[in-house]
Simulated scan of single mutants.
Amino acid sequence: MISFIPYASFRFFIVTGILLLPVIIAGLSGKRITLYNDLVAIVMVFLIFYGQPAQFVSIIAFIIWQAVVVKSYFELKKRNNRSVYFYTAVILAIIPLFFVKLSADVPVLGFLGFLGISYVSFRSVEVIMDLRDGLINEIPLNHFLRFTLFFPTISSGPIDRYRRFESDLKQVPSGKEYKELLYLGINKIFQGFLYKYIIAYLVHQYWMSSPALASNSFFSIWMYMYAYSMYLFFDFAGYSQFAIGFSYIMGIRTPENFNKPFLSRNIKDFWNRWHMSLSFWFRDFIYMRFVYLMIKKKWIKDRYLISDIGLALNFLVMGFWHGFLLQYIIYGIYHAVAFISFNRFEHFNKKHHIWPKNNKWIHALSVLITFHVICFSFLIFSGRLNFLW
């Protein structure tokens, strides 16, 4: 069976381009054919998963499960907005993802997984949390399906928000606005080709895979660290540009995922630039909710301690989200320690001014230090250091 993994072959681009021609024609006329867009989504989801029957069955069962969980919570909330209903709904929404991540240690659970289960799970959980907070008053089934099964971002994001997505669906761009979206979308797709199929390929082929980096010598591992970091960025950023580009063509302004992350001046700045849709999702729905809960319940009075625990929880969950392998857990702990340490340093520096912010040389040194802190975290993430433990 020929692969139809999103953005993994030219066949995918050709078929998708053909299917989107009526969307483009309608968009240039200032119109949107909602029924046709839904049909394209159904066809694309079928093409992506039909070659893997187990995955195809899994995603159908998963979507039904999520729809039932969201609808049930919505009905229960209307009667009584009890916390137990909310937490139960969130747990039920993430249970399938939990089992899939556990399949690294328990392979028999792997049958539950499908390409993109993490990102579809995020969408369901976000809808439940927005319902809890009263930010969404209702969510028709067809709107929920359009959001969760939006094919350009189904496999690896970027992670959109329901209210922003719904706003784009309701506001049909004029012909002039769509022409600009189409231009930007095509540019992003070509940028994706540059990143993923040229730069990332060359880095992988002639740097990462170099025999000179095969040994476990200090120099080989150090050079591999740079190579893997560059490959990870250009491969993933390229994919994100494809997803955003096709989203634009469909009239949906999917948020950006990267903003020159290797120019970050500190770890906090980095997480405002790297995989931004994921970083902001974790910040809003894990870190901020934890901080709010602690302050509201007054279980911990020290706000710095609350922040530190929230950051530790945030990055530990992020590590486990990547998988239950030790390298991912250490990666999460590493970033938690780095972020907490920087927060403490920043607080100290406000009082003593030992690290001036407006000095260009200090800024350059900050970028250099941050770059190496980040690259070392990617080395941990890559699993190259697994021989140490």
Rank of each mutant, 00 (worst) to 15 (best):
K350V: 06
Q327M: 10
K196T: 14
L149K: 03
S118V: 11
I159F: 07
H275A: 04
V15K: 01
L169A: 10
G323V: 15
S279H: 06
G251I: 13
P356E: 11
F165E: 11
F320K: 03
E126K: 00
V45A: 09
P261Y: 12
W207A: 05
I33E: 09
N37Q: 12
S341Q: 05
K77L: 15
K260T: 12
M208G: 05
Y50M: 09
Q241G: 05
K301M: 11
I354D: 04
F282T: 08
F342C: 02
L202T: 07
C375P: 00
L102V: 12
L39T: 13
V43P: 05
F339A: 01
K298R: 12
V84P: 02
N272T: 13
K350D: 14
D105V: 07
V90G: 00
L385H: 05
P211R: 02
L379C: 07
F280W: 08
Y304W: 12
I362D: 07
I91V: 15
L232P: 01
I300E: 13
F381S: 00
S9E: 08
M318V: 10
N80E: 15
F339P: 00
F285D: 06
A336G: 14
N257M: 08
C375V: 09
F74Q: 13
V120I: 15
F270K: 00
A364Q: 03
Y248N: 15
I309Y: 07
L35Q: 10
Q191E: 10
H204E: 09
M1A: 08
I189T: 08
H363I: 14
L316Q: 01
F236T: 09
I14F: 15
N358I: 11
S58C: 02
S215T: 14
G238H: 00
S209H: 01
F324I: 14
L20F: 15
A8V: 07
M129R: 03
G157V: 15
I380F: 00
P53F: 05
K176M: 11
D284T: 06
V373Q: 01
L202H: 09
F99C: 04
G245H: 03
I267P: 02
F12S: 06
D302Q: 10
L278P: 04
K179E: 14
L135A: 08
Q205L: 03
Y231D: 01
I60H: 03
Y195L: 11
V108M: 06
E75I: 14
S247H: 05
Y231I: 02
D235Y: 04
Y195M: 11
P211D: 04
L169T: 03
T34V: 14
I221E: 12
Q191F: 13
F12N: 05
V57R: 00
I306V: 14
I42F: 13
